Computed example of a mutant assay.
Amino acid sequence: MLHDLDKTLEELLKAELPPAFVGTNATTRVSISFATPDREFASQIANAPTIDLFLYDVRENLELRSNEWVVDRQPNGTATRKRPPVRVDCSYAITIWTAGNQSDPQTEHRLLGEVMKALLRHPIIPVAVLQGSMKEQEILPRSLTLRPTQLQSLGEFWQAMGGRPKPALNYTVTIAIPVYEEAETLPLVLA
C-alpha cells in the first residue's frame, strides 16, 4: 500500500508541476525519488534536480479513529455492516537536490516553491492520480502541507543523515487501510 501511495504522489507532482520541470528537456526535467536523503544519496544525483520524498513516519491517526460499525441498508430488507478502515498518517520530508556535490540554492528553492504550490492545491488527493490500491480507498486520501513535523528536531534529523541541513516541506497524507474482515449481511428487524 505504501508503494502505491508513493506512485500516487509521483503522479500528482508530474501532473501539477510546470512543464519546464516535467517536460522532455533533460537539462530542466526533474527526477522524483523516495530514497533516504543521506550523504550517499546526495552523491548519486545525476544532471537534473531531484525531488526527494522521504517517508519518515507512519502512525495511526487517533483523531479519526472510529469504532462505529458502518451500516448500509439494502432495499431487499437486509443490511450490510462492516468495521471502518483504520486511518493512517504517512509523513514525508520533501527536499530538493541538485547534481553533484555543489548545491544550487536558487534552483532548489524555485523547485521547492513549485512543489509546495502543487501540493497545497490538493488538500484531497485527486482520483485521477490514484495508483494501485489507492484507487480502492473508500475515503479519498487527504493531505496536510506545511504542518509541524513529527520529527523531534530537524537538526538531529540532518545530523543522523550525515549531511548539512536543507530546506524541507513536511507533507502528511492520511490514508484509509481496510484491516478488518469483509462485511457481513444481516436481515433487518422491522417492527
Rank of each mutant, 00 (worst) to 15 (best):
Q106A: 09
P187S: 14
L12V: 13
A93Y: 03
D104F: 00
R29A: 10
R83F: 11
L130G: 02
L154Q: 13
S153D: 12
I139G: 05
I175E: 03
D89A: 15
Q131D: 10
L55P: 02
H109M: 12
F41M: 14
T24A: 14
A79H: 05
P178D: 15
A46S: 15
P49M: 00
A15S: 15
S103F: 02
A191T: 13
P126V: 12
G132P: 00
D38T: 08
P165N: 11
L190V: 15
V189E: 14
R87S: 03
A93D: 10
E40H: 08
L64N: 02
Y56I: 00
R29E: 09
A48W: 05
D104R: 12
G23K: 07
N101E: 07
L5W: 06
N25F: 07
G77K: 08
S33I: 12
D6A: 07
Y92K: 04
L188I: 13
D52R: 11
P19W: 04
P75L: 12
A26C: 01
V71R: 14
V127L: 07
Q102D: 04
S133A: 09
Q74A: 08
R65G: 01
V115P: 00
A118M: 08
N25I: 11
Q137I: 03
T28I: 05
T149P: 03
T78G: 04
T36C: 02
E138N: 09
G77F: 01
L55N: 14
H3Y: 10
D72R: 15
A99L: 02
